[in-house]
Write a protein that binds this DNA or RNA. Sequence first.
DNA 1: TCTGGGGTCCTAGGACCC
DNA 2: TCTGGGGTCCTAGGACCC
Length: 446
Amino acid sequence: MLGVVDCNNFFVSCEKAFNPALEGRAVVVLSNNDGCVVSRSQEAKDMGIKMGVPAYQLTEQMCLRVVSAEEIKERKGKSVSLGGFKGEVVAFSSNYRLYGDMSRRVMTLLQEMVPCMEIYSIDECFVSFKGMSAGQIAAKAQEIVYKIRKYTGIPVCVGIAHTKTLAKVANRYAKKYKGYHGWCMIDTEEKRVKALQQMEIGDVWGIGRRYAKFLKGEGVNTAYAFTCKSAWWVKKNMGVVGLRTQMELNGEPVAQLDVREEKKSITTSRSFGEMVSTLEELESAVSNFASSCAAKLRQQGSAAGCITVYILTNFFREDLPKYYNSITLQFPEATCSTLEMVNHALTGLKQIYRKGYLYKKAGVLVEDIVPNTGVQQNLFEQTDTEKMRCINAVLDSVNARYGRNALKIAVQGGFGTQAEDKWTMKRNSLSGNYTTDLNDIIDIKA
DNA sequence: TCTGGGGTCCTAGGACCC
DNA sequence: TCTGGGGTCCTAGGACCC
C-alpha cells in the first residue's frame, strides 16, 4: 500500500498559519505580478472563485471587494459594510520563500514518520506503507495528519490505496468528507468500485481537460465507466499514458515511487511587471534568470549541456504586434557556472531580440543535465574550469550568508536603474518571511 | 491493385501534473 | 490597464543507416 499526503489549500494555509485574523474569511493567494488566483481558502471556493481566474475579474465580474491583510488588521475587528459588493476576499501576493520553507518543514516531518517517500510537488508527497497491516496504516495516517497540523499549522489529507492513481482518488474523498478526519483508505474491491462510480472522469489524476472532453463525448462520464472500456480502445485513443491510468484505477500498480533527486530540466522565467522594449532591459532580466538556473544546478550537484532563451510579447493584447522566439545553445562542456550561463544566455538573446516590440515575458531553460562529477571533458575547450569553480564557490557562499543575489554580476542590474524596475514583478500584498527572516518574526502577546 | 523490412536518433509539439 | 511558473513524459514525423 502507498499513500499520498496533500496539504489543503497550501499557500493560503501558510498565510493563515501566521495570521489568525484570516480564520473564517475568504482568502486567496495570487500568482506573480498579482495576476491570477492560485490558491483559495474553503470560504473562497464556496463563493465560487475558480482556480486560475485573473485577479481583476474578482471585482469586475464577481463584484467582490478585494482587500489586503493590512486593511483587515487596521479594522481591529470592527465590522465594515459591504457597500455595493457581494462579498469580500483577502488577497495575498505569492510569497514563495515562505511557502518553500513551510513545505520543507512538512516534508522533514513526514520523513521522520515513513520509511520511504517521493516529494511530488511543493505541497504533495507520496509515501510508502510497505509491510504494514491495515490497522498500522490507519494509525500512521492519523499520526501524519495530527503531527503536521500540530507542528506546522498546515492541515493535510492522506489518501491510501494500492496504486498512486487510486491513492489520489482516496485523497479526494478524505478532503471532501469531514467524517474521514483527513484520511481515507481504499483497500477493498467494494470501496474501489464505489469510489470510482462517484468520481467524475475529469477529476481523475492523469485525465486533463482534453481527454475529459473527449471521454464525455464518448459517453464515459465517471472513473468507473472509464475502467469498463477495453484496454485496446484506451490505448488507441489515449496512448500508453491513458492505458496506465486505466490500469492504475483497476488496481494494477504501474507508477512506482520515484525517488529521483535530480531534475532533468530547470527553468527560470517571469512575466514582467511592465512591458519592456530595449535590449538592455531584457539583458538585465535574462542574466538574472540564467544566473538563477546556474545556482539551482549547483544546488542539486548537476551541470547542463545546453541552454535555451526565449522572449515573448503579451499575447493577450490583440492591439499590439506579437512576437515569440527562442534559441538553444550548446555548451562546449556541460557546465553550472554562472558566468558561462549568463554569457551564453546573452549571446542567444542578442540573436533573437527584435526592435519595435513590447516584451512581456522572458525565460531561460537548461537541459541535458548530468551529474557535475561526471562531466565529459572537451578536448578543445579553453575555459579555465578550475577558476570558474572557485568563482562559483565564492558566489554561493557569499549569497548563502548574506542573501540571494547579495553578490552578482553587473549585467544583472539592481542598482536602482530604470532598466530594472520595469521588469521586476509587482507584489503589492506580500506577507512577511516569518520563518526565514529575523526581522519578520511574528510578535505574540502572551 | 500491386511499391521491402528493420532500425536509430532527433525535434517539435502536445498532453498532463502541481 | 490587469491573465503565473515549473516540471514530466510521450508521439509523430523527418532524416538517416543497412
